[in-house]
Simulated scan of single mutants.
Amino acid sequence: MRQRVLLLLFSLAFLLWLPMLAVAEGMLPAPSGKVLLTISGDIDFPNVDGEASFDREMLMAIAPTEIRTRTPWHSDCARYEGPLFREVLAAAGVHSDRVRVRALNDYEAEIPLAELHDYDVILAMSRNGSPIQIREFGPLFVLYPFDEHPELLNESVRFRSVWHVVHIHAP
């Protein structure tokens, strides 16, 4: 009985580890859940129809990061979790020096990749431990560490802090 439990636990750990290994090796697996994000353009690792598609599980396997910050749109300090934006782009093999981020309502903003390397910007997926719903800026929200870097509290960065993110294009 104990061997069965150990085998089951080992198998489960392996299945959870496999997608992370594939991303680390540059082989992006196909999403098994609902696609939250699609990356198109100049990418090395497409997984669905020439684009890189990610479900929630895939995104959370890429450099999960926590930021505690206030935002220009929330009065309280909150704990946000999600993958580092630059690592999501690396998982797709983006080569561009900038990306265009598009929201559900077709709002778009251009973000220079240098900025994503200067700051630990995340694609926030949860706020205070709960998934961010569409009515609350979700399912993905480009979030800068505002409290750690007050210089980010400016109009340009606010325009690049896209919420309801669904698509990224690397020209």
Rank of each mutant, 00 (worst) to 15 (best):
residue 25 E to H: 05
residue 25 E to N: 06
residue 26 G to S: 04
residue 27 M to N: 02
residue 28 L to I: 13
residue 29 P to M: 06
residue 30 A to N: 06
residue 30 A to T: 14
residue 31 P to D: 03
residue 31 P to G: 08
residue 32 S to N: 08
residue 32 S to H: 04
residue 32 S to K: 14
residue 34 K to H: 10
residue 34 K to T: 15
residue 36 L to K: 00
residue 36 L to I: 07
residue 38 T to I: 12
residue 38 T to F: 01
residue 38 T to L: 07
residue 39 I to W: 04
residue 40 S to R: 03
residue 40 S to W: 04
residue 40 S to E: 11
residue 40 S to V: 13
residue 41 G to S: 07
residue 41 G to C: 15
residue 41 G to N: 06
residue 41 G to A: 13
residue 41 G to M: 12
residue 42 D to G: 01
residue 42 D to T: 12
residue 43 I to W: 00
residue 43 I to V: 12
residue 44 D to F: 14
residue 44 D to I: 05
residue 44 D to K: 14
residue 45 F to T: 05
residue 45 F to L: 10
residue 45 F to E: 01
residue 45 F to V: 03
residue 46 P to T: 12
residue 46 P to M: 10
residue 46 P to Y: 00
residue 46 P to G: 08
residue 47 N to E: 06
residue 47 N to Y: 03
residue 47 N to C: 07
residue 47 N to D: 09
residue 49 D to Y: 09
residue 49 D to P: 08
residue 50 G to Q: 12
residue 50 G to P: 04
residue 51 E to H: 10
residue 51 E to Y: 01
residue 52 A to S: 04
residue 52 A to D: 00
residue 52 A to I: 08
residue 52 A to E: 00
residue 52 A to Q: 08
residue 52 A to K: 01
residue 53 S to T: 05
residue 53 S to L: 06
residue 53 S to Q: 15
residue 53 S to E: 10
residue 53 S to V: 07
residue 53 S to K: 13
residue 55 D to W: 01
residue 56 R to Y: 12
residue 56 R to Q: 14
residue 56 R to F: 07
residue 56 R to K: 15
residue 56 R to E: 13
residue 57 E to V: 07
residue 58 M to Q: 03
residue 58 M to C: 12
residue 58 M to I: 12
residue 59 L to W: 04
residue 59 L to D: 01
residue 60 M to Y: 04
residue 60 M to Q: 10
residue 60 M to I: 05
residue 61 A to V: 05
residue 61 A to H: 03
residue 61 A to N: 09
residue 61 A to Q: 01
residue 61 A to K: 06
residue 62 I to P: 07
residue 62 I to A: 05
residue 62 I to H: 05
residue 62 I to Q: 03
residue 63 A to L: 03
residue 63 A to E: 04
residue 64 P to W: 01
residue 64 P to A: 10
residue 64 P to F: 00
residue 66 E to P: 07
residue 66 E to I: 15
residue 67 I to S: 08
residue 67 I to C: 01
residue 67 I to N: 00
residue 67 I to E: 06
residue 68 R to W: 04
residue 68 R to F: 04
residue 68 R to I: 15
residue 69 T to V: 12
residue 69 T to Y: 02
residue 70 R to K: 13
residue 71 T to H: 12
residue 72 P to D: 09
residue 72 P to G: 09
residue 73 W to I: 13
residue 73 W to A: 13
residue 73 W to V: 11
residue 73 W to T: 15
residue 73 W to G: 15
residue 73 W to R: 09
residue 75 S to K: 07
residue 76 D to I: 14
residue 76 D to W: 06
residue 77 C to H: 02
residue 78 A to H: 14
residue 78 A to K: 07
residue 79 R to F: 03
residue 80 Y to D: 05
residue 80 Y to S: 02
residue 80 Y to I: 10
residue 81 E to D: 13
residue 81 E to G: 02
residue 81 E to M: 13
residue 82 G to D: 07
residue 82 G to F: 00
residue 82 G to H: 00
residue 82 G to P: 02
residue 83 P to D: 10
